[in-house]
Design a binder for these strands. Structure first.
Lengths: 209, 209
DNA sequence: TAGTCTGTGTGACTTATATCACGGTAGCTG
DNA sequence: CAGCTACCGTGATATAAGTCACACAGACTA
């Protein structure tokens, strides 16, 4: 583990804290598609994303997966913080979207660092605030927007994380948005007519400026 | 302000912390319907609810209000904590549902107490976790449920906070659920047929056991 | 090369919800 | 008491989205 990489990804932490992170964290490598956290699983450590993109889902009783938000390198899984602090179980499903590297910090350090390092406390609070905001944005989308707008937002988010060439099927998108393949297909066709995307087999290219 | 009342509402805090709360907090009395926090307003203090019920909304661009969750006596507005810690503005609308008393604690104490009192840190983290969960539940409802289930959940929540006799119009409910009066009316009629509610003018009585 | 699988495209239909257009009624106010 | 206003009830219709059925095409596999 490279301390300079950590400093770069998580700036503004105290010098001593970087040392602790390196000493007490353990690296986990994930292949694209692998599950990092299952619903109901007990959380024993706080996760920091070092590399790649992690996707968070909410699951319904029949196992349908509803996409909530992404986590990037340099971000922390807030859920793993709250849960970790109380030894509780996960309420969400987290999967690696790309190959990813995460740093697992055993939960006992959460508490210690919180009172010891002001920068850690700031970091945790900021993480929370950001995740909270994302959650509110997600609520806005489903409460106030139609499928066409939601699809547009969704694709833009993907493009932000993965580039303009999205390797995913219509069915994948439908699952994330809790919709159906046919609906997504038709909406994509409309977007294609407006020159926002080009539809390929197994991939979609975002060409809107 | 009665310190014993505070101890009762917020148990498990350290002895010294109660003193600080009483010394530095200021009481705000709100009439039912009054606004506690507007969208875009700068937050300068953390709010603890001492009495009554506060309702949180998300607003869309046209000012439509979508109900997110309630806050009871003994709870804190997590949003006011995150925002306060960073001097940022509110993302939600908070209104007193009943007459209410809140305790405003200037934000500078947030930071101090966080490192000084372990119990405060625990309290804040727990608040977060609970609000986060509520938000996830709200997402579940709109992502996975139809209006009839959502209305049922909504009414149950109201009953929990306010008792079985709900003084609200069909229009009020429609606003909270981002639906329309007619739809709510029809669903309520169905519930009445199933003996779950009795519909009165300006109020609804929950009679389902 | 034929056969199979997975992803895509599309018409027809169903369902949930929203919207429109009324008419009715309780309770208040001049 | 007349008339007003806010609330409630309900049919007709419109729209968005989900479902069903089926056809086709690219890619891989025997």
């Amino acid at each position: 583990m490279d301390i300079n990489n950590i400093k770069h990804l998580f700036p503004n932490l105290e010098e001593g804290l970087y040392g602790e992170i390196v000493n007490h964290g353990t690296i986990k490598e994930l292949k694209a598609g692998e599950t990092l956290l299952k619903v109901g699983q007990t959380i024993r450590s706080t996760m920091l994303i070092l590399n790649g993109v992690v996707k968070l889902y909410r699951e319904d009783d029949e196992g349908k997966e509803f996409f909530i938000y992404h986590l990037d390198a340099g971000q922390a899984c807030s859920l793993s913080m709250v849960c970790a602090a109380k030894h509780e179980t996960s309420e969400v499903l987290a999967k690696a979207l790309t190959d990813a590297t995460v740093l697992a910090i055993p939960l006992e350090f959460m508490d210690q660092w919180m009172s010891k390092y002001k920068s850690w406390y700031q970091f945790v609070i900021t993480s929370y605030r950001n995740r909270f905001e994302e959650l509110l944005t997600t609520i806005d989308a489903i409460a106030f927007s139609n499928m066409d707008e939601r699809l547009e937002d969704y694709l833009k988010k993907q493009v932000n994380k993965l580039g303009t060439n999205l390797k995913m099927t219509h069915q994948d998108i439908a699952n994330d948005l809790n919709s159906s393949r046919e609906v997504i297909n038709r909406l994509l066709k409309k977007m294609e007519a407006k020159n926002w995307v080009v539809i390929h087999r197994n991939s979609i290219e975002w060409i809107k400026k």
